Simulated scan of single mutants.
Amino acid sequence: MTDHQPEPIGTGSPHEDRRQTGPVMLRRHKVPVTTTDQRLLEAHQPNEWLHADPWRVMRIQSEFVEGFGTLSELGPAAAVFGSARTRPDDPAYAIGVEVGRLLAEAGYAVITGGGPGAMEAANKGAFEAKGTSVGLGIELPFETGLNEYVDLGINFRYFFARKVMFLKYSRGFIVLPGGFGTLDELFEAVTLAQTQKVTEFPIVLMGVTYWQGLIDWLRDTVLEGGMISPSDLDRLVLTDDPHEAVRAIRSYEGPPA
């Protein structure tokens, strides 16, 4: 073998060279034929690496860094959830506007998913009250971006990063009528409160007629079957009154500074 011929890689010998790449150890046929620096500096490369799991970790990290950096000085805030399908002529839309307005007047930033429908309504209420209107959007094939009433917006690729921002920077949830996404956020919060991952975290369900069936099922089936405790159900405040909803948020900590 001449000096100009490369050493064969991966012949199966247990005594072959190995390569340490950070915490990862590679041997035999797993040792790449090129180095990281070489691949970095090559001009013409395929872009499959953009979709590889290690790169996704960096992208996930960047979403957390961006979210924490943007929201860390937000101040007292409450999250409002509800369906993107709520139309402006739906009574739930008007309730969302009123909830957003009252939260802003009480000194809270209003955080929503940033989309249309009930989310837009709460952002509109905060905007019209000259409060801080926040939208945490999510990349979806059928969404059109953040609504026009969002003053401070972040778009996320990953639901779990977005959920952390809602829970970390909100002092309570107000939940308007909604579908699977709204239910997902609702039960995520209830589960974290039940397991004491978050403490003193009020959860208000706006719309007695809409939510009463769910409350009845939780009480008559889930609680009756011993799957939850009475205190788990007591965490949920059910009301039609936006003022009562905001009082429930404030009661856990007193008025924000």
Rank of each mutant, 00 (worst) to 15 (best):
T195C: 09
I203D: 00
A193R: 06
L192M: 14
P177R: 11
T199W: 01
I203W: 01
F187R: 07
P202N: 07
A189I: 04
F173V: 03
T195H: 12
V175K: 01
T182Q: 12
V198L: 13
R171W: 13
T195I: 15
A189E: 00
V204R: 00
V198M: 07
F201Q: 02
V198R: 03
L205S: 03
V175C: 11
Q196S: 14
V175A: 09
D184R: 03
I203E: 00
G179F: 09
F173G: 00
T195A: 10
T199D: 09
P177W: 11
Q194S: 10
M206Q: 12
M206V: 11
G181Q: 05
G178S: 12
P202Q: 06
K197E: 11
V198N: 04
E185R: 01
Q194I: 03
F201C: 03
L186C: 08
V198A: 06
E200W: 05
T199H: 10
K197L: 07
M206Y: 10
L186N: 03
P177S: 14
L192P: 01
K197A: 09
V175M: 11
F187I: 08
V175P: 00
L183W: 12
A193N: 08
V198I: 15
T191I: 10
V204L: 10
L176Q: 04
T195V: 14
V204E: 02
V190D: 00
T195D: 08
E200I: 05
R171G: 15
V198S: 06
P202E: 04
F180V: 14
E185C: 05
E185A: 04
F180D: 06
L205R: 01
L183Y: 13
G172Y: 06
V190L: 15
F187L: 12
G181K: 07
E185W: 03
P177D: 12
P202I: 02
M206A: 11
D184A: 10
G181C: 08
T182G: 10
A193L: 14
T191V: 13
G179C: 12
V175S: 05
Q194W: 09
L183P: 01
E185G: 02
T199C: 02
Q194A: 11
Q196P: 00
A193T: 14
Q194N: 06
F187A: 09
P177Y: 11
F173S: 01
F201N: 03
G178T: 07
D184H: 09
L192D: 05
D184G: 06
L183D: 08
T199P: 00
L205F: 14
V175W: 04
R171S: 15
R171F: 09
R171D: 13
V175E: 03
F201M: 08
E185S: 04
V204Y: 04
V204D: 01
P177K: 11
K197R: 15
F180G: 06
V204M: 09
